[in-house]
Amino acid sequence: MKLTDIVRPKLVQDGMFLDGIDIVGEKLMEINVFSPGGLNVMIQMCSIDFATPVIESIERKVYYKSMYSNYLYNSRLARL
């Protein structure tokens, strides 16, 4: 099982959406929930634009939160 598969359920449960997970070898070093960064590096490494879908998803979550603020908590928004 990958470290990401182990960590993901807890992060989603806590309402985390965009996190940076620092892994060295097979060890989890750090989880960055305030400043995940790394999108620019991932774009360069994989030649895939991750930033656009991430920003679109954040915008969608902000919209949902404004429309359903009493119903959609961060833990639910993280799953959308």
Results as ranks from 00 to 15, higher is better:
1 M>C: 05
1 M>K: 08
2 K>W: 03
2 K>N: 15
3 L>I: 15
5 D>L: 03
5 D>K: 09
5 D>E: 15
5 D>Q: 14
5 D>F: 01
6 I>N: 08
8 R>D: 06
8 R>N: 07
8 R>L: 03
8 R>V: 00
10 K>W: 02
10 K>G: 01
10 K>D: 09
11 L>T: 05
11 L>I: 04
12 V>F: 03
12 V>M: 06
12 V>G: 01
13 Q>P: 00
13 Q>T: 03
13 Q>A: 13
13 Q>S: 09
14 D>N: 11
14 D>H: 07
14 D>S: 10
14 D>I: 00
15 G>S: 09
15 G>W: 03
15 G>A: 09
16 M>P: 00
16 M>R: 06
16 M>L: 08
16 M>N: 10
17 F>M: 11
17 F>Y: 13
18 L>N: 10
19 D>H: 02
19 D>R: 01
20 G>V: 02
20 G>K: 03
20 G>Q: 05
21 I>V: 15
21 I>T: 08
21 I>G: 08
21 I>A: 07
23 I>M: 06
23 I>V: 15
23 I>R: 06
24 V>I: 14
24 V>E: 15
24 V>T: 14
24 V>L: 13
25 G>C: 03
26 E>R: 06
27 K>E: 15
27 K>S: 14
30 E>W: 02
31 I>C: 11
31 I>A: 10
33 V>Q: 12
33 V>T: 14
34 F>C: 06
34 F>M: 02
35 S>F: 04
36 P>I: 00
36 P>F: 11
38 G>T: 05
39 L>E: 14
40 N>P: 00
40 N>Y: 06
41 V>A: 14
41 V>S: 13
41 V>C: 05
42 M>C: 11
42 M>P: 00
42 M>N: 07
43 I>H: 11
43 I>W: 01
44 Q>T: 07
44 Q>E: 15
45 M>N: 10
45 M>L: 11
47 S>Q: 13
47 S>E: 14
47 S>H: 13
49 D>M: 04
50 F>M: 03
50 F>S: 02
50 F>L: 11
51 A>T: 13
52 T>Y: 09
53 P>T: 04
53 P>A: 07
54 V>P: 02
55 I>G: 04
55 I>V: 13
56 E>T: 04
57 S>K: 07
58 I>L: 14
58 I>C: 12
59 E>Q: 07
60 R>N: 13
61 K>V: 10
61 K>N: 14
61 K>A: 13
63 Y>F: 13
63 Y>M: 11
63 Y>W: 12
63 Y>T: 11
63 Y>I: 07
64 Y>H: 06
64 Y>I: 05
65 K>T: 05
65 K>I: 01
65 K>W: 08
66 S>I: 01
67 M>K: 15
68 Y>V: 01
68 Y>Q: 09
70 N>G: 13
70 N>F: 05
71 Y>K: 02
71 Y>C: 01
72 L>F: 14
72 L>K: 06
72 L>R: 04
72 L>V: 05
73 Y>T: 06
74 N>I: 00
76 R>M: 10
76 R>L: 10
76 R>P: 00
77 L>N: 09
77 L>G: 09
77 L>P: 06
78 A>S: 15
78 A>R: 03
79 R>C: 01
79 R>H: 01
80 L>E: 12
